[in-house]
């Protein structure tokens, strides 16, 4: 771990403190100065006792793409819930599954985490493995009918990734997305 100036460290910890205080306030369920102050104390104690590697920044939030992503996400959540529920109920049971690898384009820890989380909740896929270096995600697909269906699901993963990058990605990430779009999808040039 590299030693950083105290100011930078502090700046990286601020979002975490805000989040912890927010959780504390939500747990109490009401706003008061006492809650805020005790939340701050708890947050600082947690951060001092359990120092976490900070999530390196480069993430910004764009409201409109964020809403687009959230809208699709909620719809996907319902569709996938219904789909898997149907698989459990129907007499024939599960017939075919598949394991596929998908070449992603983003190169940021936080974004990859978000993509993996979102992918696990959208229809038909579950993250099995994530190769950080090569940015390859291995997925287990549950209801697959045929090869075309597999390809359709693979394309859907890339769509989810793109929505997330548009909502949260730094300019570099957006650039990487466009570059990868113009290249062939398979080969990412090695430097």
């Amino acid at each position: 771990m590299t030693v950083e100036p105290a100011a930078t460290r502090l700046r990286h910890q601020v979002p975490l403190v805000v989040w912890l205080v927010l959780v504390w306030m939500l747990l109490w369920g009401s706003w008061s100065w006492a809650n805020l102050l005790s939340g701050l104390v708890v947050a600082l104690v947690v951060l001092v006792l359990l120092p976490l590697p900070h999530v390196v920044g480069g993430v910004r939030v764009r409201p409109v793409p964020l809403l687009v992503f959230l809208g699709h996400f909620v719809v996907d959540l319902f569709v996938s819930g219904a789909e898997v529920a149907w698989q459990t109920l129907r007499p024939a049971g599960v017939r075919r599954t598949a394991i596929v690898r998908v070449q992603l384009r983003v190169d940021s820890d936080l974004l990859l985490t978000m993509v993996a989380e979102a992918i696990s909740l959208v229809p038909g896929s579950l993250v099995l493995d994530l190769d950080r270096e090569r940015r390859v995600m291995t997925l287990h697909l549950l209801p697959v009918r045929d090869r075309a269906d597999v390809e359709r699901k693979r394309a859907h993963v890339l769509v989810v990734e793109e929505r997330l990058v548009r909502a949260f990605g730094a300019p570099e990430d957006l650039e990487a997305l466009e570059r990868a779009g113009s290249d062939a999808r398979e080969e990412v040039r090695a430097p």
């Binding site: 959540l77 319902f78 996938s80 819930g81 789909e83 898997v84 529920a85 698989q87 459990t88 109920l89 049971g93 599960v94 599954t97 696990s120 909740l121 229809p123 038909g124 579950l126 099995l128 287990h140 549950l142």
Partner: peptide, 22 residues
């Protein structure tokens, strides 16, 4: 139901995430 009826661990995990979370 999915935990009981699905054939292997990976499929069961699908049942454990999506309908469960929703």
């Amino acid at each position: 139901l999915g935990l009981v009826r699905f054939p292997d661990v990976l499929s069961r995990m699908h049942a454990g995430t999506k309908p469960q979370v929703l």
